[in-house]
Design a protein around this nucleic acid. Structure first.
Lengths: 344, 344
DNA sequence: TACATCTTTTGGAACGTTCCAATTTCGCAT
DNA sequence: ATGCGAAATTGGAACGTTCCAAAAGATGTA
């Protein structure tokens, strides 16, 4: 019989006051650790609180002082380990700072994103961290800003306004990735991602294209493979690439998840990445070190990015009216098996 | 200049009352959709609320009616896709039911778990869903129960008390897995996981052992490989297994993550899972379908398990004093490449 | 017109805190 | 004893809701 024996009513500050024979104001001060209260009284109050099994009512406190320790986190896709690791990093540092995360998952649906954002407003979060769903219109930001609530956008920029943002240098990343493959001797290189997949995609594709151009290599339009940015997409992409006449010998993937799909599809064809074909991903999720074969990638260290994002956010909370903060993680090339062999 | 232009003070029910020339009681009733209020008045109130940009203050409401729509979710390891998918499933159904998730990540640390549980109590969550960290002592449950707050334990049972629980039939799962390998002709089969890794490990090992025994196969103690239940652990495990004299031809892995590590390590040795060695995982995470090679696994459909868990929890909230609820997902054998070939 | 009944609206006390202003208590010098 | 400044404590209003009991309005009946 679980959840039986429910307390008659949980103890309040007033109950403590009665037991400790002081006023509730005193109790409040003690609980806040005020130096105004005599040590002796303070001890008595704490004792009473203990025996009553008192638990602080953050809701009531938040109502009175107009501020909460809740931060709303809106995440687009937790099944992508990149976002999971990012979330863990953010949550960790926020918790460290005494905040607690009201989390909502949008699954890339604009509709649910709209819904949860409204909901977070009702909970009077101290601020919002948003990993926007694909194609989030700038109006969404305006709506939040109009509410006067601190907002940090993560990973995917939205529109052109100036808001706090933490992400990574996508163009530099794919530039490095592509250059790495070129240095391995590859000349026909594919780029696999969702065409029109927003600014992140755009920048990554541009970085790819720039590296190709800089090294005097042609960019064949068929090499820009249009697939959903998922594992399935990656599989599909490799199938398309392998079917091309004059087929590429390497592929830069939009992200690690796509790359994982690609590794799988190669294996299916009896090919080994890093021997028969080169694959490089983007993000640097933990799994990349353990895939088959281990995946070369452009790492932005998602966990760390999350922690930095949290710091940025906390800074914003401390300083509500300071110019827009912006952080771009510098990506790092991590070479593993999947791109190790030279081009044929 | 973000977050500027902050509203003087956000509109309250009283403001609406003034504008609509009614009492705040009326406004409250309207907002609750009470049928008591005349349609005409109701419209007027709603209109006023709109123009004021009113946003409902859930905190205040929760304080007054002693109940909240917050559910605390304590998750041990989001970097394991199993838990990420589980979380997504739970969160989805809870949101559907109008609840919002206060999420905290413990990273398998008992200390932070203790801390976040205390914190959730302060937020007066309507209930708690706990994916316990490894080796969580039963005392933790008692503490929560003493607070009289509905609790659902997920995935990992704790001690012997009767509390609401949602998990899967672990023994049946590894039994199936092992039997599947045996039917493929394997006779020397390893089991890789963290020895002493709690009840889930125990049951999975027992299922494995039972299948071996039932089919008259010996269980060699060296085949029970002791590794951390992570990707790295999986790599390490395969290395150990391959080094054994009389080496096994197949391995049942504690979970999919271990299996992924195993696939990677096999590849490193130039071996292909499903041709040179058979691997089967446990959990059925989405990635399993896309690994290299695709991973055979005992699927409990984590997303679905999450949804069911949420339903169980909601039922508990509706019926606070009903006997302990218990759900065990029936695992399903999913055969993919990694175990497809027959034993040599 | 007066009364009963039903519908609609409302005052105000809660919920558990915080914090200002005011009060009491204390220690100490006169 | 008395006064006085500092230290310690306290009363009570506020935060934005809900909801009970009661009041007010509307409608119908005798």
């Amino acid at each position: 019989m679980p959840n039986q024996r429910r307390e008659p009513r949980s103890a309040t500050i007033t109950d403590i006051a009665r037991v400790a024979a002081v006023s509730k104001s005193t109790v409040s001060l003690v609980l806040q650790g005020s130096p105004l209260i005599k040590a002796e009284t303070s001890a008595r109050v704490r004792q009473a609180a203990d025996t009553l099994g008192y638990v602080y009512h953050r809701g009531a406190a938040a109502l009175r002082r107009q501020s909460s320790k809740i931060v709303g986190m809106v995440i687009n896709d937790l099944t992508n380990p990149f976002f999971a690791e990012l979330l863990v990093g953010m949550e960790h540092n926020l918790m460290e700072a005494g905040y607690v995360s009201l989390m909502a998952h949008t699954g890339e649906s604009l509709e649910t994103q709209e819904k949860v954002l409204a909901s977070m407003r009702e909970y009077h979060a101290a601020g919002l961290i948003l990993c926007p769903a694909f194609d989030t219109p700038p109006g969404v930001l305006e709506a939040i800003r109009a509410g006067g609530i601190p907002l940090l956008v993560v990973v995917r920029p939205i529109g052109t306004g100036d808001y706090d943002f933490a992400g990574s240098d996508n163009e530099a990343g794919t530039f490095m990735a592509t250059e790495h493959l070129i240095q391995r001797g590859h000349r026909r290189i594919a780029f696999m991602g969702r065409v029109g997949g927003g600014p992140v995609y755009e920048l990554r594709r541009i970085g790819f294209a720039r590296a190709m151009t800089v090294h005097g290599l042609p960019i064949v339009s068929e090499w820009i493979v249009d697939i959903p940015p998922t594992r399935t997409g990656g599989r599909e992409g490799i199938r398309q690439v392998l079917a091309l006449r004059d087929r590429p010998t390497a592929a830069v993937c939009y992200n690690d998840v796509v790359a994982f799909g690609a590794l799988g599809a190669l294996g299916e064809q009896g090919l080994i990445a890093g021997r028969d074909f080169a694959i490089i991903g983007f993000d640097g999720v933990a799994d990349a070190a353990h895939s088959n074969p281990p995946l070369s990638t452009i790492s932005v260290d998602p966990g760390h990015l999350g922690e930095v994002a949290a710091e940025l956010f906390l800074q914003r909370l401390r300083e509500p009216s300071t110019p827009a903060l912006r952080f771009l993680a510098t990506p790092r090339l991590v070479v593993r098996q999947s791109s190790r062999a030279d081009a044929p």
